[in-house]
Lab assay of single mutants.
Amino acid sequence: MQIFVKTLTGKTITLEVEPSDTIENVKAKIQDKEGIPPDQQRLIFAGKQLEDGRTLSDYNIQKESTSHLVLR
């Protein structure tokens, strides 16, 4: 499924993911596309910070959901 990640600069990154993917996996995909190390990434969805060990389905992130990327 596709999800979108919006950066603070207003850029939207499109990612191909599975509901069973962990947040860690998603951060690795963002690193592949954008070159941002996962330890600098914070992903926010529905006002919550997403934890590495959880999956997209844990957070009820469905296709075409948009989460926000904040850099630390």
Rank of each mutant, 00 (worst) to 15 (best):
M1Y: 14
M1Q: 04
Q2A: 08
Q2M: 13
Q2C: 09
Q2E: 09
Q2I: 15
Q2Y: 13
I3S: 01
I3L: 10
I3D: 00
I3A: 01
I3K: 00
I3G: 00
F4T: 08
F4A: 06
F4C: 06
V5Q: 00
V5I: 14
V5L: 06
K6S: 09
K6D: 08
T7E: 03
T7D: 06
T7G: 05
T7A: 05
T7S: 06
L8M: 13
L8S: 14
L8R: 11
L8Y: 14
T9S: 13
T9I: 07
T9P: 04
G10M: 04
G10R: 03
G10N: 06
G10K: 03
G10H: 06
G10F: 04
K11I: 09
K11V: 08
T12A: 04
T12Q: 07
T12K: 07
I13F: 09
I13Y: 05
I13N: 01
I13M: 05
I13W: 05
I13T: 02
I13S: 01
I13L: 09
T14S: 09
T14W: 08
L15A: 01
L15P: 00
E16D: 12
E16G: 05
E16Y: 12
E16H: 11
E16S: 11
E16V: 13
V17N: 00
V17W: 02
V17Q: 01
V17D: 00
E18Q: 13
E18R: 14
E18Y: 14
E18W: 12
E18N: 13
E18L: 15
P19A: 09
P19E: 08
P19G: 07
P19V: 07
P19N: 05
S20Y: 11
S20P: 02
S20F: 11
S20W: 13
S20T: 13
S20Q: 10
S20M: 11
S20E: 10
S20N: 13
S20C: 09
D21H: 05
D21Q: 04
D21G: 02
D21R: 01
D21V: 04
D21K: 01
D21Y: 08
T22P: 05
T22A: 04
T22K: 08
T22N: 04
I23W: 02
I23F: 02
I23L: 04
I23D: 00
I23M: 03
I23V: 10
E24L: 14
E24Q: 12
E24W: 15
E24H: 11
E24D: 07
E24R: 14
E24I: 10
N25M: 15
N25T: 14
N25S: 15
N25L: 12
V26A: 02
V26Q: 00
V26D: 00
V26T: 03
V26N: 00
K27S: 01
K27N: 01
K27Y: 03
K27P: 00
A28C: 08
A28Q: 13
A28K: 15
A28W: 11
A28L: 14
A28R: 15
A28G: 09
A28F: 11
K29C: 03
K29V: 04
K29Y: 07
K29I: 06
I30C: 01
I30Q: 00
I30M: 03
I30H: 00
I30V: 05
I30E: 00
Q31F: 15
D32G: 09
D32C: 08
D32Y: 11
D32V: 13
D32R: 13
D32T: 10
D32A: 14
K33H: 09
K33N: 05
K33P: 02
K33G: 04
E34Q: 07
E34L: 15
E34H: 07
E34C: 14
G35K: 06
G35R: 05
G35I: 02
G35Q: 05
G35P: 02
I36K: 02
P37I: 05
P37A: 09
P37N: 07
P37Q: 06
P38K: 14
P38G: 07
P38D: 04
P38L: 12
P38V: 15
D39L: 08
D39H: 12
D39A: 11
D39K: 10
D39M: 08
Q40T: 08
Q40S: 08
Q40W: 08
Q40G: 06
Q41I: 11
Q41F: 14
Q41D: 01
Q41Y: 14
R42T: 15
R42K: 12
R42N: 13
R42S: 12
R42M: 15
R42A: 10
L43G: 00
L43Q: 00
L43T: 00
L43H: 00
L43C: 01
I44P: 00
I44Y: 15
I44S: 12
I44G: 03
A46H: 14
A46P: 01
A46V: 06
A46L: 13
A46I: 06
A46T: 05
G47S: 04
G47D: 06
G47I: 02
G47V: 02
G47C: 07
G47W: 04
K48G: 05
K48D: 06
K48R: 11
K48E: 13
K48H: 11
K48I: 15
Q49H: 10
Q49E: 15
Q49V: 15
Q49W: 14
Q49K: 10
Q49Y: 13
Q49I: 15
Q49F: 13
Q49M: 13
L50F: 02
L50V: 04
L50N: 01
L50P: 01
E51P: 02
E51Q: 10
E51H: 08
E51Y: 07
E51D: 09
E51R: 08
D52M: 05
D52S: 07
D52W: 03
D52V: 05
D52A: 07
D52C: 05
G53N: 12
G53Y: 11
G53K: 11
G53C: 08
G53D: 11
G53S: 11
G53A: 10
G53L: 07
R54V: 05
R54P: 03
R54D: 05
R54L: 11
T55H: 05
T55G: 02
T55Q: 06
T55E: 03
L56I: 09
L56V: 07
L56T: 01
L56P: 01
L56Q: 00
L56W: 03
L56E: 01
S57N: 09
S57R: 12
S57C: 05
D58W: 11
D58F: 14
D58R: 02
D58G: 03
D58P: 00
D58M: 05
Y59T: 02
Y59M: 03
Y59Q: 03
Y59N: 02
Y59I: 04
N60T: 04
N60L: 05
N60V: 04
N60G: 15
I61D: 02
I61M: 08
Q62S: 14
Q62F: 14
Q62G: 15
Q62M: 12
Q62H: 13
Q62R: 11
Q62T: 15
K63H: 15
K63P: 15
K63Y: 10
K63V: 09
K63M: 11
K63W: 12
E64M: 12
E64Y: 14
E64Q: 10
E64D: 14
E64V: 07
E64H: 14
E64N: 14
E64W: 13
S65R: 05
S65F: 10
S65M: 10
S65N: 09
S65T: 12
S65I: 09
S65W: 09
T66M: 11
T66C: 10
T66N: 11
T66V: 13
S67Q: 10
S67A: 15
S67C: 15
H68T: 13
H68L: 15
L69G: 02
L69C: 02
L69E: 01
V70E: 14
V70T: 08
V70R: 06
V70Y: 14
L71C: 05
L71D: 05
L71R: 05
L71N: 05
R72D: 12
R72K: 13
R72G: 12
R72C: 15
